[in-house]
């Protein structure tokens, strides 16, 4: 069930690259299928996408109305 998922939030706004990527990769290291990472980003983390793909994670990254991006990451 979706409401059983563990949501982990990260606010990466104000951080310079590659710190957002480092925080995300460190956070999801022990993620199982019941965990979702939701992160606020200043930039679209383009190099992170391939890292997530190679590690078996799915993701979405959408621009927010007020600026920045909302990234969601979960295990495939």
């Amino acid at each position: 069930m979706d409401n059983q998922k563990r949501i982990v939030r990260l606010d990466n706004r104000g951080l310079a690259p590659p710190e957002p990527m480092m925080r995300i990769l460190t956070t999801i290291e022990d993620f199982d299928r019941d965990a979702i990472l939701v992160a606020n980003m200043d930039r679209e983390p383009i190099f992170l996408f391939a890292e997530l793909h190679d590690r078996g994670f799915a993701y979405s990254c959408d621009p927010e109305i007020g600026g920045g991006y909302l990234l969601k990451v979960y295990r495939e």
Binding site: D2, I46, A58, Y59
Partner: peptide, 18 residues
């Protein structure tokens, strides 16, 4: 059950990207 995020399983919004 369908994953609520799976429908967006693409790399962002192409119109926002270079």
């Amino acid at each position: 059950m369908a994953d609520p995020f799976h429908a967006n399983d693409v790399i962002g919004n192409p119109s926002s990207r270079n």
